[in-house]
Design a binder for these strands. Structure first.
Lengths: 343, 343
DNA sequence: TTGTAAGCGTTATCAT
DNA sequence: ATGATAACGCTTACAA
């Protein structure tokens, strides 16, 4: 910057102003400075700037360690939409992985307390906390995405899973289905709670009870949704009264489940209807094409960044809002009338 | 840091030393300082540190804009392995997207010239260059991954695609196949060149000519590999002499291709053997399970980071090395003897 | 409108 | 082994 100033024949501070607040400097001077900067191929040093203003322009996205649990299929879209939205606002995106170990928690806390990042978008239900340092008290702006953490004080971007699955279940009931298999991801988290609740609501509304549904999955030991689907297929094989409809809480689970039960000789959707969550592109090309409740990654990413930007400018951080994005069912062939021979 | 110094009763510079070079300070003093730091919940400011030492500890990964072109399925694994390897070395990972527009190039150049990042791992064949600023001259350490750019001076981590596809093609020939369909990604890039060359080499070694293979795909207009597979299925439908074996250059392409030709009534592998590239987890659960030439994301990520670390410490950047990671065929049912009724 | 100068939180040099 | 101090490159009062 000193070089640019010298070349343009002005003071350093004028260069700084010309580059950051072009309005607050004389037109002629500005042009001289721009020319000098371009000639020298000058780009302001971001670390110096951030140090001086006391804020970083980096946001971190905290991904749950087992990427392949649940929404793995849409992670690339999520990253892309968040990154684009951040760039629009002058921010950059850093990746942080939160595993079930203290090291990864510590790493994230360092990122926060060292001032490396200014804010975070978190896709996990756990806020890192080690040795008295907690992400909640790091002075960051944080927004949750996918999971509702508004009760923990974080603005959250979620989809209306409960409602969506309730409607889908109702439709399955309308198609004659009376016995369901529900394949759960990590038990007890927001997605599981909401989606299972939606399923039960639809059952009750139709005069059925929780006995109509068998739960599978819910273990925390698995790395990938695929494994859960495989396990669910074994569960299915053991059931004396076969369910005729399956609700899988991720596309991965549905894909591997279908693969296994087809191998056992069951026909989809002839013997068994299947619907899952996420809206992965691959569902369209599964055989049969898979019905899936879309998680609108693009919109969610944008919304999350929007909320984050609000939080960042906010002086008084009030209540945590909950931003619900409607998800829709993409209906494909995996979904049909109950088989006529079904009891 | 001043607070810690005061509490520990030492000078600021001693605190700095104690935290950064614990060896160069008296045992007792160090303990006092550590205690004070912990008591105050102190974490050193990264931006100040980086400014002072003149280096950032952030590495960016440059992803090609159309994420779903080619290797999209393994991007999450790639990110995870790179991030883990970087953390081991005290670095963080930032995401950058390189689209086919000037804005994204400019953005990446800013990241580089502003000193925000110290190095880059690039998964694209194009180095950003706008207005005289070029990524090649930004003073960064850069490593290429997936594509061989060693001739452009970048250490590169690649798989032995040519050899792998040559062997697979030879095996298909052994199984009796004589007519091939090759589904290309972006035409002319390293993957396309190598993989097609490997196919031809195997054909020639068996006394066949290039006429044995029909090329499909190769357009740059598509966003997703899936679309290319769909298009290839149309091409396939139009061919008078149907190929009996298909080599798809990504799993996405194979999945959508299979879905479409199955719908046309073709049986895999009865009528048609299929093999593809990438080793996406989903291939195992396709129907039929898909043979795929694995791209070992984990190893490649680690190797890329390894090369990058070498480059960073290197005073004299000599030749760009090429690091080849062997990929292997995961053989599954999509792959069989040529149909007996084939001409 | 522009210039002067202080200071952001570190590290590194040089004394002590 | 420790302490005082300058400097990294920028922004921002405040003064001119």
């Amino acid at each position: 910057m000193a070089d640019v100033a010298r070349l343009a024949g002005v003071a350093i501070s004028t260069v700084s102003r010309a580059l950051a607040n072009p309005g607050r400097v004389n037109e002629k001077t500005r042009l001289k400075i721009d020319a000098a900067a371009k000639q020298l191929g000058y780009t302001p040093n971001a670390m110096a700037r951030n140090l001086r203003v006391g804020k970083s322009n980096i946001i971190m996205i905290i991904l749950p360690g087992s990427l392949y649990y649940g929404v793995s299929q849409i992670i690339p879209q999520v990253l892309q939409s968040i990154n684009n939205a951040l760039i629009q606002n002058g921010y950059h995106l850093m990746i942080a992985n939160l595993d079930r170990d203290e090291m990864s928690e510590r790493h994230i806390l360092d990122l926060a307390f060292s001032g490396t990042v200014r804010g975070a978008i978190i896709l996990s239900s756990k806020l890192p906390e080690v040795d008295g340092r907690s992400l909640a008290n790091a002075g960051l702006s944080i927004v949750s995405m996918l999971l509702d953490m508004s009760e923990a004080g974080l603005p959250s971007v979620v989809t209306n899973d409960r409602e969506a699955v309730r409607e889908v279940t109702a439709e399955l009931i309308r198609l004659g289905h009376r016995r369901f298999l529900y394949i759960a991801g990590p038990e007890g988290n927001y997605h599981d709670v909401e989606r299972y609740a939606g399923t039960l609501e639809a059952l009750r509304a139709a005069g059925l009870t929780e006995e109509a549904v068998t739960r599978s999955g819910g273990y925390l030991g698995y790395q990938e949704g695929f494994e859960i689907g495989v396990e669910a297929a074994s569960d299915f094989a053991r059931l004396p009264d076969k369910p005729t409809a399956v609700i899988a809480t991720s596309d991965d689970m549905a894909v591997s489940f279908i693969s296994r039960v087809q191998r056992m000789g069951f026909n989809i959707p002839g013997d068994l209807s299947v619907v899952s969550f996420d809206g992965s592109p691959v569902c369209e090309f599964s055989s049969p094409p898979l019905s899936t409740i879309e998680q609108p990654a693009e919109e969610m990413g944008q919304a999350a960044v929007g909320l984050l930007m609000e939080r960042i400018d906010m002086t008084d951080k009030g209540m945590a809002t909950r931003h619900v994005i409607p998800s829709r069912l993409i209906r494909r062939e995996s979904f049909a009338l109950v088989p006529s021979n079904s009891a």
